[in-house]
Design a protein around this nucleic acid. Structure first.
Lengths: 138, 138
DNA sequence: ATGTATGCAAACTATTTGCACCCCC
DNA sequence: GGGGGTGCAAATAGTTTGCATACAT
């Protein structure tokens, strides 16, 4: 998806397109499968634009998540990671040693009997497998 | 499981049984399905034993988790919750409004083809469904 | 007796908030 | 022009750490 896809989506809701917001989107679109913390997003941007503040990164990650453009990942560490909703719904294998992750396409919700969940309005779900990746194995 | 089951398990590893450690175990064994933060454990204990420090709670929750007696739950909030490994392996429905949770017995690992996961040593996994519970629904 | 565990205080990390100024629409 | 967005600084929440003392074994 080109950056304009997301920009138009924001404009349609009356959200202003600032240079800072464009930079954040650029970061997430610059590579495949990026999982970045607020700090990491910030440092990638300040390399070029030192005036970008970390607060603004936090505020906009939250906004982009509310708008459905980013997904917040909690890999059990203290800090949240974010990924852009660019590809199919997926989950992750997370290496507990290096922190790296790879995608898996299995989704538990496809296999469980949702009728068993009554009186509960499902909003979202999380599924991660933690362990040691090939690189860290030896 | 009686408290002695856990105490013996700790003693067998040469871990000292202090009054503080016993109090923490008591808290988790006092009710079914408890999911408590460090702060909550601490305040339940200080009600009776005001000298218990929060640091000690943190240190011992970590120790009990390493010993396999507690499981740390990350429901996406800032703080971790802990539950005692008393019952069958299970996952949770978590209410995003009140923070409450109920157990579900479906486990994704029973349904996915583990052969698809190669070059990765599985250590643990997480699966939670988030949404609105019956109480918070109206 | 010995070394681990505790309490206290202070440090730390990730994140959030108040406020005055700025700039996108 | 106006209201949302930004940077700065300070506050907050949860957790961790250093150190001297206390206590379980």
């Amino acid at each position: 998806m080109p950056i304009n896809y997301f920009i138009e989506q924001l404009q349609a809701k009356g959200i202003k397109i600032t240079p800072q917001r464009q930079e954040i989107l650029h970061v997430f679109l610059s590579e495949e499968n990026l999982h970045l913390s607020a700090e990491e997003v910030h440092s990638r941007i300040t390399a070029k634009y030192p005036s970008m503040s970390l607060d603004t990164v936090y505020r906009n990650l939250a906004m982009l998540q509310e708008q459905g453009i980013l997904t917040e990942l909690n890999f059990g560490e203290r800090k949240s990671l974010f990924e852009i909703n660019n590809s199919e719904h997926h989950h992750h294998l997370v290496c507990t040693k290096c922190g790296g992750s790879q995608e898996i396409d299995f989704c538990p919700l496809d296999f469980m009997d949702r009728k068993k969940i009554i009186n509960f309005k499902i909003e979202k779900h999380s599924f991660e497998i933690f362990g040691i990746c090939a690189n860290c194995m030896e």
